[in-house]
Amino acid sequence: MKLVNMIETLRTKTVKKIAYGILVLLVMVDFIIPRHEVHFFGDKIPGFWSLFGFSACVVIIIVSKWLGKNGLMKDEDYYD
């Protein structure tokens, strides 16, 4: 099973380090990338969308879990 081995290679520590490297690179390149489509202030700040992506993820998880714990989530046999 070659495919399984390939997938397992992707789960090593080295790949993780490369992934972090890519994140740093993403923000750095954002300082020099040409901006033609400026829709609002965020488009002018380098690294804005990186911060946005990360905070969006955190906000969605925390707010949803909070809503879930405060009434939305019920046992599976709730309707039975």
Binding site: I22, L23, V27, S50, L51, G53, F54, C57
Partner: peptide
């Protein structure tokens, strides 16, 4: 940026 930082 949005997607990869979501992944983080």
């Amino acid at each position: 940026q949005i997607l990869l930082f979501t992944q983080l």
